[in-house]
């Protein structure tokens, strides 16, 4: 492609003009030494808002990010501490019970090594006080008949089928198909605690003459070979004298509180 002489001249003129402009700007920098010329100010004014805007955006993002990281760290620490508290509570409970009934416990050499803290993900709505679903399953080592406690180390129930990879079901002690070997703590009267799909459990097989009173503490006896002994279940809330036996109603402690977080006793030695 051939260009006309006029066009070429025009282009060269523009080139020379622009080059001269740049040289002029450079030379103005020499004359003014370190002071900024008007044109420099114009260029700075044009570019600096972008930089400031960018800087502010970055500062804002990093500030928010730092907050987020800090909050996440705090949350992780909080969660760890919560776990530790639960563990300590549990250990404390075991030790307390061992001290309390040292003589009685001589034959019992059971000790729980580890446990799992889990969250309730759903509650059985169709059958009240029957079962709940938790977010731990066979991949976490959950097995059938593992004992489930609440945060205060009070009995909640046991693991039943179905146990999936990620979830499992807990049958509550208030379920009408549940049965727990239990004692009245003060006088060691033994019986079987069964649920009724409501807030109360029945303490069965207690002869009429046995001394039981309201507010007596009920604990596990361990005779059912599923639930370990000395775990608090609840307290006696109502007694009805029958012909040969007395009807004792026990209110489990866990029904009084939300059961969002639960403890599963994993290994029993």
């Amino acid at each position: 492609m051939f260009q006309s002489g006029n066009q070429k001249e025009q282009k060269i003129t523009v080139l020379v003009l622009v080059l001269f402009l740049n040289l002029f700007l450079m030379s103005s920098s020499i004359i003014l030494k370190n002071k900024r010329s008007l044109f420099q100010n114009v260029i700075s004014s044009f570019a600096s808002p972008f930089q400031i805007g960018f800087q502010k955006t970055i500062d804002f993002i990093s500030f928010e990010l730092k907050h987020y990281v800090f909050l996440k760290d705090t949350f992780d620490k909080y969660y760890d501490l919560k776990k530790r508290i639960t563990k300590l509570k549990y250990e404390n409970y075991i030790l307390r019970k061992k001290i309390e009934g040292f003589g009685f416990l001589k034959s019992i050499e059971k000790k729980f090594d580890s446990f799992i803290v889990t969250e309730v993900i759903s509650v059985d709505n169709s059958i009240p006080f029957n079962s709940v679903m938790i977010n731990k399953g066979s991949k976490d080592g959950i097995k059938k008949n593992m004992v489930v406690l609440n945060k205060k180390v009070e009995l909640v129930g046991k693991i039943v089928e179905p146990i999936t990879w990620f979830t499992s079901r807990v049958r509550l002690v208030t379920s009408n198909i549940s049965g727990v070997g239990a004692y009245i703590k003060d006088n060691k009267l033994e019986g079987l605690l069964t649920g009724g799909n409501n807030k109360l459990c029945n303490f069965n097989y207690l002869i009429e003459t046995m001394p039981v009173k309201v507010d007596d503490l009920v604990i596990t006896s361990g005779t059912d070979k599923i639930f370990p002994p000395y775990i608090s279940i609840g307290k006696v809330v109502k007694i009805t004298k029958g012909h040969l036996i007395q009807e004792v109603y026990v209110k489990p402690f866990f029904v009084e509180e939300s059961i969002k977080q639960l403890i599963i006793i994993k290994d029993e030695k």
Binding site: V18, L19, N22, F24, M26, S27, S29, I43
Partner: peptide, 18 residues
Amino acid sequence: ATDYFTCGIIGVFGFSRV
């Protein structure tokens, strides 16, 4: 713009880039 970002002397990179 390059001048502004590098040495701050307007015209140097302007000239060379042209």
